[in-house]
Design a protein around this nucleic acid. Structure first.
Lengths: 196, 196
DNA sequence: GAGCGCGAGTAGACACTATCTACACCCACC
DNA sequence: GGTGGGTGTAGATAGTGTCTACTCGCGCTC
């Protein structure tokens, strides 16, 4: 089954995913996506009433991908019988890795000026991810009095690291490209020093 | 001295600041800013060769404002003889407060797809801020072996909290609007539990 | 003081965009 | 075999950012 055979809805999203990976968010014009999918500029309207709804669908695809990446990373460490701290480290690395490997998509996913309206559905996707995080954090901090806050704080830290790296601020401030020391500092802070 | 008297460069930036505060990033079209400043759509070109350079100037204004807000907050606590931990808490609250009070500007400031090119100069503005943070973190953690990483990790945490709140993710995940528990969790994690 | 030059802002052209509308086509169904 | 509805095309429209004359007014020079 080629691209031409799939229904246009999926082809448009796929075209958007390719474009944003290759040329960034600014390449996601409606006509540009339609051209890349090999249809006229009016065709997308049949499936996505507005440009933003198409972008939201592309971002949704990104959230699905992120979920897969994180689930895959966790499955890998979980089967080795790793403890919660190790699993959280792997998840964090996977999160930052996704942001670094898909900078355009990562930016699109958190551009709420483009995505507002369909935001509720998009955000719902992140909830299962968060719950996985929360379970592991609760394992590391068995007697934490507010595990939700602790998890959200850690999650925000990861997100901030990903965002600031994408923006180039960390390079300016730390001198190097490597976020790993910062990630380890963040994990040490939130989860306690690594035991080894 | 009225708006009409000031030179157009400053008036355009002021118009952009007003527009982004009122209607968000999407309202910052070149022609829209020119209209709001009361000039023709070709006038800005004399001072800003491209639309993005105008946006960068507006963002630069935002960074200046953020610097002022943080410096003001720190000055307030420093004069009371507060310790480093208290000063960092005040700075963190001021950072989150700025992001909450100026969501459009905050988004513009970190939209590197709009600002790339003039990014280096913009980012340079954040360096003094970072150094202030670093000095206070070093006071809290006198024998930290990598204070730069610790500071960057904390900064990323604040930034992530601001960003995720602006995006609405925190409300979804924690149930409430209040970031304060998350901020306290982050500060406890990075600076150790509050002594009181 | 008259003439010139030049900087500032205007206005229109151009290519492009998103949205809307009318139209052609093809396949399924009666 | 004709018909209807869904699918994609193509043009119109309003708006955008950039580029290019052009006008106007002020200050300097002869």
């Amino acid at each position: 089954m080629t691209d031409q055979d799939r229904d246009l809805r999926a082809r448009l999203v796929a075209a958007g995913v390719e474009l944003v990976a290759r040329d960034g968010v600014n390449a996601l014009g409606l006509r540009e996506i339609a051209r890349h999918a090999g249809v006229s500029h009016g065709a997308p309207r049949r499936y996505f009433p507005t440009h933003r709804e198409l972008l939201a669908a592309i971002a949704r695809h990104g959230f699905g991908k992120l979920t897969d990446v994180l689930a895959g990373a966790d499955a890998l460490t979980a089967t080795t019988g790793a403890d919660a701290r190790t699993r959280l480290t792997a998840l964090a690395r996977a999160y930052l890795g996704f942001a670094a490997a898909n900078p355009g998509m990562f930016e699109l996913m958190f551009r709420h000026d483009l995505l507002e309206g369909s935001g509720a559905e998009l955000r719902r996707t992140t909830l299962p991810l968060f719950l996985t995080f929360a379970g592991l954090v609760a394992e590391v901090h068995p007697r934490c009095d507010d595990p939700t806050a602790a998890t959200a704080a850690l999650w925000a830290n990861l997100h901030g690291l990903a965002q600031l790296r994408a923006w180039g601020s960390l390079r300016l401030v730390t001198g190097g490209e490597d976020v790993d020391p910062l990630l380890r500092a963040a994990l040490d802070a939130h989860l306690g020093p690594a035991t080894r």
